[in-house]
Design a protein around this nucleic acid. Structure first.
Lengths: 212, 212
DNA sequence: CCAGCAATACCTACCAGTAGGTATTTTTTT
DNA sequence: AAAAAAATACCTACTGGTAGGTATTGCTGG
């Protein structure tokens, strides 16, 4: 097996170094370039035609999803492993629809990264198991701990998530087949329990606690 | 000079590896432990009494600022280098007030990290130059591109940031010595330009575009 | 079985944010 | 110096979110 050309794209220098140091132990990989943003990345891909791009979704300027789309449109031979911070089932779906070969959460281990890269270069795909997604986002030990810590209920967390998706009380009520008054009550209870005053506070809370 | 004990704390495995691989080239450093969250970190610090903690501010659960405060209160010998994604002058100020020895933006280079660590262990402090803060957050090429893309002004971006910090129109007006009516106008212009309807949408936009 | 909690729902009130239009002054660009 | 863009400011109106209190139903664990 000969060396596969790999390109890394991430806006964090340290993360690049981290991935680099993990992957350079692999003899059959050659990291030919790194990119700190989407524009750089597209340049490099056009020049190098790599077998694999490891792509951070959260880059400034043109974002990762756009890069993914462009790579998949213009360079059919190039495989893409998406790296991201958060585990939103909808995001995973979107990435899957865009035909990326893999999806990896950033706080995975080095071994998981190597495994994913190997799988993809061998022609496979590497996505988090759906139960893994679910377990992290809903039923895990940490989630219960989290609920207890803030005295929140599952329904309340569900509504927090919907508020963070820019949905209004009215929309939420319609989607859940409930009265607006009920949603109103939930929202008030949420803000009271978390000692917050507005949606902005709620979203910061959600982000800090990885609810998004 | 003998080895200095260093502890790393970050919730991203890859970033830990990255920093590790950068710092293990330094002969006079010994990375004695890593921590993936605040609780782990406090355990490790109590056991190891390291000379230096490199601390990510964006950790889940108990956050970095709380760790910083606790370390500074309980372990006066331990120096702290704060690592963070974002460059908000107020955050830098807060960290400075909490007596951290350094503050480094995550997409700095490996050389900058080594430099900061060296400076701190030699008894100095390492903070980004104020013009650097300004230049990164305000005058960079990407920032201008970004403004043009969405037809936003600097003032508007400033207000977006403040809204995202849970500040009300009234508070923003007071802080900037402006009329509430002016802030109102800015907010309306922002939502119109970005085709958004509410604060939640605005915060998602801000996050996607690394404004926070 | 009963207590307690979660989820549902209503009424009222108030305030903050959204939305339209317009206008003046200051700053930047040409 | 003139034109364009940005920042400031006001008036009005409406909507949506925040906030208080209360009540009913259903489920769950001691």
């Amino acid at each position: 097996m000969k060396c596969s050309k790999v390109v890394l794209a991430d806006d964090h220098q340290f993360l690049l170094e981290g991935i680099l140091s993990i992957l350079k132990e692999e003899p059959d990989l050659e990291i030919v370039a790194t990119a700190l943003n989407g524009i750089e990345l597209m340049d490099v891909v056009a020049k190098q035609k790599p077998q694999l791009v490891i792509l951070d979704l959260n880059m400034p300027g043109y974002d990762g999803l756009q890069c993914l789309q462009k790579i998949k449109a213009d360079f059919t031979e190039t495989k893409v492993l998406v790296l991201t911070n958060y585990i939103q089932p909808e995001l995973v779906e979107e990435v899957r629809k865009m035909k990326a070969e893999g999806y990896l959460i950033k706080n995975s281990s080095a071994a998981e990264l190597k495994e994913a890269v190997k799988t993809i270069l061998a022609g496979g795909v590497s996505y988090p198991a759906s139960d893994e997604l679910k377990s992290i986002s809903d039923d895990s030990y940490f989630f219960d701990e989290f609920l207890k810590k803030y005295q929140l209920t599952k329904r309340e967390v569900q509504i927090i998530r919907m508020v963070c998706q820019e949905k209004s009380t009215k929309q939420i009520a319609a989607e859940l087949f409930l009265s607006e008054l009920t949603i109103n009550t939930h929202r008030r209870n949420i803000l009271r329990k978390l000692e917050l005053n507005n949606v902005a506070g709620l979203m910061n809370f959600a982000r800090e606690n990885q609810l998004l």
